[in-house]
Simulated scan of single mutants.
Amino acid sequence: MKKVTFLLAAILVLGVSSIAKAQKSDSHNLNIKIDKQALIAIESEGSTDISFDSKAFVNAGEEMTFAASGSNKQLWLNYSSIVGTGSTNTISAKISKLPEGLKVNVATSESAANSSKKGKTGKGYTVDLTEGGVTVVDNIGSCYTGIGANKGHKLEYSVSVDDSNYEKLVAADHTLVVTYTITEN
Rank of each mutant, 00 (worst) to 15 (best):
residue 66 F to H: 01
residue 103 K to I: 05
residue 158 S to E: 12
residue 135 T to P: 02
residue 5 T to N: 03
residue 25 S to E: 05
residue 157 Y to E: 05
residue 22 A to P: 13
residue 134 V to R: 14
residue 183 T to D: 11
residue 40 I to Y: 08
residue 61 G to H: 08
residue 34 I to L: 11
residue 18 S to H: 12
residue 118 K to S: 08
residue 95 I to E: 04
residue 14 L to Y: 09
residue 172 A to E: 15
residue 62 E to D: 15
residue 11 I to H: 00
residue 49 D to M: 01
residue 90 T to G: 09
residue 130 T to N: 08
residue 110 E to V: 04
residue 162 D to C: 04
residue 38 A to M: 08
residue 12 L to R: 06
residue 158 S to F: 14
residue 40 I to Q: 02
residue 99 P to T: 15
residue 148 G to T: 07
residue 175 T to R: 00
residue 23 Q to V: 03
residue 121 T to R: 09
residue 144 Y to P: 10
residue 46 G to L: 10
residue 55 K to H: 13
residue 92 S to Y: 02
residue 55 K to D: 15
residue 54 S to R: 10
residue 163 D to V: 14
residue 185 N to V: 03
residue 38 A to L: 07
residue 65 T to K: 01
residue 4 V to R: 07
residue 87 S to V: 13
residue 42 I to K: 05
residue 113 A to Q: 02
residue 35 D to N: 06
residue 103 K to N: 13
residue 24 K to L: 00
residue 33 K to I: 15
residue 78 N to T: 00
residue 121 T to I: 02
residue 118 K to P: 02
residue 147 I to V: 15
residue 16 V to M: 14
residue 95 I to M: 09
residue 89 N to R: 05
residue 31 N to F: 12
residue 26 D to S: 08
residue 145 T to G: 05
residue 151 K to W: 14
residue 63 E to N: 05
residue 105 N to M: 14
residue 125 Y to G: 01
residue 98 L to Y: 12
residue 5 T to V: 05
residue 22 A to W: 15
residue 99 P to W: 10
residue 46 G to K: 10
residue 47 S to P: 13
residue 165 N to G: 12
residue 23 Q to A: 01
residue 75 L to D: 04
residue 81 S to T: 03
residue 74 Q to D: 00
residue 58 V to L: 09
residue 173 D to G: 08
residue 131 E to G: 14
residue 43 E to S: 12
residue 129 L to K: 13
residue 54 S to M: 09
residue 109 S to T: 10
residue 137 V to K: 12
residue 61 G to V: 05
residue 102 L to R: 03
residue 164 S to Y: 00
residue 83 V to K: 04
residue 6 F to V: 02
residue 115 S to K: 14
residue 164 S to T: 05
residue 26 D to P: 09
residue 57 F to D: 00
residue 3 K to R: 06
residue 121 T to Q: 07
residue 16 V to P: 10
residue 61 G to P: 01
residue 58 V to A: 02
residue 108 T to R: 09
residue 22 A to N: 12
residue 163 D to Y: 11
residue 141 G to A: 00
residue 181 T to S: 08
residue 165 N to L: 15
residue 45 E to Q: 09
residue 116 S to T: 04
residue 54 S to V: 10
residue 152 G to H: 04
residue 94 K to I: 05
residue 102 L to P: 04
residue 58 V to N: 03
residue 181 T to Y: 07
residue 76 W to I: 04
residue 108 T to D: 02
residue 45 E to M: 08
residue 11 I to W: 11
residue 45 E to N: 13
residue 184 E to D: 09
residue 3 K to H: 07
residue 54 S to H: 06
residue 31 N to D: 14
residue 159 V to H: 07
residue 46 G to Q: 04
residue 146 G to M: 11
residue 92 S to Q: 03
residue 20 A to P: 06
residue 86 G to V: 01
residue 181 T to M: 01
residue 132 G to C: 00
residue 94 K to V: 09
residue 164 S to F: 03
residue 24 K to N: 00
residue 119 G to W: 13
residue 5 T to Y: 14
residue 137 V to E: 02
residue 161 V to R: 09
residue 139 N to S: 14
residue 136 V to F: 10
residue 37 Q to Y: 15
residue 55 K to T: 15
residue 175 T to E: 11
residue 154 K to I: 08
residue 171 A to G: 07
residue 109 S to V: 11
residue 185 N to G: 04
